[in-house]
Amino acid sequence: MEKGFLKEVRIHARAGQGAITTASLLGDAFFEEGKFAYAFPHFGAARMGAPMNAFVRISERPVRLRSQVYNPDYLLIVDPSLVMGFDVFKGFKEEGIALINSEEDFPIPEMKKSQKVFFIPANKIAQEIMGRPLGNTALLGAFCAITGLVKLESLLKAINKRFSGKIAQQNIETARRGFEYLKSTSRR
């Protein structure tokens, strides 16, 4: 067994929606805090628009387990249309937290009391800031806020390493807004 803590994140998106970048940014944020993360993709069909997953496995020591994530502690649903056609909640942990990229709440399967699901208007936030509906960094900001596993500052550092100039600034702003959205107690 992994010593210390081991957390697993499963991202649901369509190929081309930046799920791998999202996973690697999250992994890099943990790296900034001296932790180890293995971020990796799994493609269903190898084409744009096809449903795909990216995973992040986080630990205090190097991650050796190479299999996919079947019992996620955290779910990041980048494309809410996937909730309809797929069982995105399959294997969802008892104390799991799911973040869905959607402006409006919509019906989802019944959850256990200990499981939490949040709807975040991530694409709306991104549209306002960068003029494009790429809400991935807003979801990551929200992840920092709700889990407390990794600091927002670490995520922002990772974003700064990955992007430069205007794109970096816009994504930092988007991440901050996602963070603040979930920090505001009215949404809890």
């Binding site: 791998i20 996973a23 992994g27 890099d28 180890f36 993360a37 990796f40 993709p41 991650v63």
Partner: peptide, 12 residues
Amino acid sequence: LDGYILTHGYEV
């Protein structure tokens, strides 16, 4: 090195 698992995986 194993395709995807290592080529597309991120690690320290």
